[in-house]
Simulated assay, not measured.
Amino acid sequence: MEITLKDYETVITDLFRKRPEKKFDFSVINHLLNAHGNPQHAYPVVHVAGTNGKGQVAAKIAFALQNAGYRVGLFISPHLFTYEERITINGEKIPRETIVEYSSELERISEELHLSPNFFESTTCFGFRYFREQGVEIAIIEAGLGGKWDATNVVNPLLSVITSISYDHTEFLGETIEEIAEQKAGFIKPDRSVVVGPRAKYLSIFKKAEELNAPVHVVEKKSSFYDTENQAVAKEALTILTAQFPLEKSAIEAGLKFSLPCRFDKKENVIYDVAHNIDGFTRLSAALEHRYPYRTFRFVIGMSRSKDIKGCLEKIEQKARHVHFVQACQNDSATTEELAEDFRLISTCPHSLEESIEEGIRNAKAAANKSEMIIVCGSFYVMAEAINSTCPLSFRES
């Protein structure tokens, strides 16, 4: 199938118009998958959920299995640079031609069945279908917003993983930690093992596991550096998987060392980190204290209006020598004025309102002294623009 760049861009634009809304059933995703012969049941699945760390843990598990010689599908979200990063097999992205083809067929099926799938339901269907057609031996599936009605939660996984639980997407998942934990508990399946991270040990999780006779594997190790915890959770999952997918120690070690871009990613004197909620900012602050206790920091920050902006900024304001506020190109991005208004309620730290992300980083670099580091954070969308404008292509393709 021959496609043009315009064909692909039109499809992606149309997909992003199908934004998520509150849903409390699987009717749409089930109808779509039934129309495709339920591809999600064609291979074993590891299902990874959690507030933070789920993308990293999913990627580590996938990379370890790949290093052991398995053909591994990896489904993650959101993407940093291109949509097709969400669906990969052994690190190779789904072709754009396939996305255009799948989208056309999805539109036809949706019209026939009178369905209106949203962005994530469409993308989930693409991923499940692609993995079956390409003959993966196992798929690592990261949940989306992460509630019990998440479109990915139609799988019957070999293993479930809940990395952490904290406040995020409260408009979908609930206002209290236990309400959010109850939503995450919805990923536990009858008689299937579940790995519970050190920051996911809530009553709702253990009650649901007991109710469903699901063996629980608790990871106790906490650390001031969050990837140490991610490694511990991934290692526990891989240890369980070895019963059906034999793994050499070297493959496990390679997987644990693997990291997705922009997870405390240092390039020269700039750290890129996708911290975008209170827990993420808390962990970022702790990591800076742990890794660079004697350095000072300039922050380049842009955030979504849907986040607890004031709560997030409180976590870094005492570490900040200066904050450069930026606005990402996304529909719900807070303006620089909105960010600064919240910041002034909690801090007298110097700050500036930048015209663009590129300008914000450029100004931060120009003003930084030799002891200062620049921290770019607050949103996946900020990260993508920051790297596209300031980093070489080799980094964006890594």
Rank of each mutant, 00 (worst) to 15 (best):
I252M: 12
I252Q: 03
I252A: 04
I252S: 00
I252D: 04
E253P: 00
E253C: 02
E253F: 05
A254E: 13
A254G: 03
G255M: 12
G255N: 10
L256Q: 06
L256C: 08
L256H: 08
L256G: 04
K257L: 13
K257Y: 00
K257G: 14
K257R: 14
K257Q: 15
K257M: 09
F258P: 02
F258M: 07
F258Q: 05
F258G: 06
F258R: 05
S259C: 11
S259Q: 14
S259K: 15
S259V: 07
L260E: 11
L260C: 08
L260N: 13
P261C: 12
P261E: 07
P261H: 06
P261N: 09
P261K: 10
C262L: 04
C262V: 11
C262Q: 06
C262P: 00
R263S: 11
R263T: 12
R263Y: 08
R263W: 04
F264W: 01
D265I: 04
D265G: 06
D265T: 09
D265Y: 07
K266G: 00
K266F: 00
K266W: 05
K266V: 14
K266E: 14
K267N: 11
K267S: 07
K267P: 03
K267Q: 15
K267L: 14
E268A: 13
E268R: 12
E268G: 05
N269P: 00
N269T: 10
N269L: 01
V270N: 00
V270I: 15
V270G: 00
I271E: 06
I271T: 06
I271K: 01
I271W: 05
I271A: 05
Y272N: 09
Y272T: 05
Y272C: 09
Y272G: 08
Y272I: 05
Y272E: 09
Y272W: 11
D273V: 06
D273Q: 06
D273P: 05
V274T: 13
V274Q: 07
V274H: 01
V274E: 01
A275L: 08
A275S: 13
A275D: 05
H276L: 08
H276G: 03
H276R: 06
H276T: 09
N277E: 05
N277W: 02
N277T: 06
N277V: 03
N277F: 01
I278G: 01
I278A: 08
I278Q: 10
I278S: 01
I278E: 12
D279S: 13
D279T: 02
D279W: 03
G280Q: 04
G280A: 09
G280I: 03
F281H: 04
F281I: 04
T282G: 00
T282P: 00
L284W: 07
L284N: 07
L284Q: 03
S285H: 10
S285C: 08
A286G: 11
A287R: 06
A287D: 10
A287P: 03
L288P: 01
E289T: 15
H290M: 10
H290E: 15
H290C: 13
R291F: 13
R291V: 12
R291P: 00
Y292T: 02
Y292L: 13
Y292W: 15
P293H: 11
P293T: 11
P293R: 11
P293Q: 11
P293V: 11
Y294C: 09
Y294D: 15
Y294K: 14
Y294S: 15
